[in-house]
């Protein structure tokens, strides 16, 4: 059984307009999304801004109330608050945010920031608690003198590691990481990613890794879902997505990643423009008449793509 099963998740936001400010329309931030996260894996959720990837992450953590659909954990739907309490869900699922400065309380010391989730869920005496905090700091490579400092006294990378330590504090089963390294410099990003991988190996944690950076996602994730307009356009293993992309949108995203080779520059641009042209011309075939992503179709055991019927036939031949 999967660790988390998201079934037909929908999150709608009302749009108010007109003279009486009534709800006249809805933004379908997440518009029918299903995915399974296995224990111990890193699941990548990729999309551009506005695709609904952050809303999906927040729904899984319980920060956003789904309009429809289920999120199953140990067979129970945790969109119902009662089930969340019963299963200690809030202890088992934690979140890391992109903006490490605003997600840490500026008036609290690091000791209190990391100890907070422990205090909420475990009852340790002062010494045990401190020991645990020191252990956690050690896991993310920070010294004991960090205990009594405040968030602003750390660099962006260090703060992000403090965020990781806080998330790990309750021994969670799943950490939802929303763009955890997007604000970081390359060398610092490498460090945070390494810590995240190490923690996963040591504690068997699963990640839902939400990112727009396809290079980082390739490095981190075993299974990847590509999201567009609130729905998934393609799900597959790393190999499926990067070596055999099938949806026109996935191809477009991949072609936009800059390569670090100078020679292929002209070809890369030509390729990118060709894909973009194809996207503009054939878009209508891959989306229904309302511009919505088509339903996912199984291509292989691991690979699902939102393809139009005629494309599937072509693939079969």
């Amino acid at each position: 059984m999967s660790l988390i099963e998201v079934k037909d998740l929908e999150v709608h936001y009302p749009i108010r307009s007109g003279f009486w400010n009534r709800v006249t329309d809805e933004v379908l931030a997440v518009d029918g999304l299903s995915l399974n996260i296995e224990a111990g894996e890193t699941y990548g959720l990729v999309g551009e801004s506005g695709s609904g990837k952050s809303t999906t992450g927040k729904s899984i953590v319980g920060l956003e109330k789904p309009t429809r659909g289920q999120i199953l954990y140990k067979g129970k739907d945790i969109t119902k608050p009662r089930n969340r309490r019963e299963l200690d869900y809030n202890q088992d699922v934690q979140m890391i945010f992109q903006d490490s400065l605003s997600s840490l309380n500026p008036r609290k010391r690091i000791e209190d920031i990391i100890a907070e989730p422990i205090r909420n869920f475990e009852h340790l005496d002062k010494n045990q608690e401190k020991l645990r905090v020191l252990q956690l700091l050690d896991i993310v490579g920070l010294d004991a003198d960090a205990l009594y400092k405040y968030p602003h006294q750390f660099s962006g990378g260090q703060r992000q590691r403090i965020g990781v330590a806080r998330a790990v504090a309750t021994n969670p089963k799943l950490i939802v990481a929303d763009e955890p390294v997007s604000a970081l410099d390359l060398s610092v990003q490498a460090q945070v990613l390494n810590f995240m991988k190490r923690i996963q190996r040591d504690f068997g944690i699963s990640y839902l890794f939400i990112s727009h950076d396809l290079g980082v996602v390739r490095h981190m994730c075993d299974n990847i879902a590509i999201m567009h307009r609130g729905r998934l356009v393609e799900i597959g293993t790393r190999d499926d997505i990067y070596n055999h992309p099938m949806h026109i949108y996935t191809k477009r995203l991949l072609s936009a990643i800059p390569e670090t080779s100078v020679e292929g520059r002209a070809e890369a641009r030509a390729h990118r423009e060709a894909v973009e042209r194809e996207f503009q011309e054939n878009q209508s075939r891959y989306y229904d008449k309302d511009g919505k992503v088509l339903p996912l179709v199984d291509v292989t055991d691991t690979h699902k793509v939102a393809l139009p019927a005629d494309e599937i036939d072509k693939e079969d031949k």
């Binding site: 390359l186 060398s187 490498a190 390739r218």
Partner: peptide
Amino acid sequence: SLLRSMPQKDSENDDLYVI
């Protein structure tokens, strides 16, 4: 060092280089 700390194709199983 910078180039080495970039995530590369087929780097999944290795740690990234940290300065």
